[in-house]
């Protein structure tokens, strides 16, 4: 199993995630595919010194990509949507 901080790959900063952040204070992260919800909770809490109230995860399906006559796939990846205790914040998303 990878180390804690390796579980979290990075923040997901897109139009969709920004909208969710602005509306409901949800933080989206790209995480290792093997990471479980308790591990993610622990990792976020340790890395950012916050209290996590909820973790939801989903696997973003691999997309088919064709390059000329070669057809391939992009890897599937796991996204975690984390909600924090009121008053806590993570800097990356604040801008």
């Amino acid at each position: 199993m990878p180390e804690q901080h390796h579980l979290i790959v990075g923040p997901v900063i897109t139009e969709k995630s920004s909208a969710a952040f602005q509306a409901r204070k949800e933080y989206a992260f790209r995480v290792q595919a093997q990471a479980t919800k308790p591990q993610i909770r622990a990792a976020i809490e340790a890395l950012f010194e916050v209290t996590v109230t909820d973790v939801r995860t989903l696997v973003v399906r691999a997309k088919r990509k064709s390059y000329g006559r070669y057809v391939g796939r992009r890897p599937a990846w796991k996204k975690a949507i984390v909600t924090l205790k009121e008053g806590d914040a993570i800097q990356v998303f604040e801008g």
Binding site: V12, I13, T14, E15, S17, S18, Q22, E94, G95
Partner: peptide, 15 residues
């Protein structure tokens, strides 16, 4: 990246 043109939030653009 991750945003359509003109849809990025102000905070991000400022940074």
């Amino acid at each position: 990246p991750g945003f359509r043109k003109g849809k990025a939030p102000a905070a991000l653009v400022r940074k």
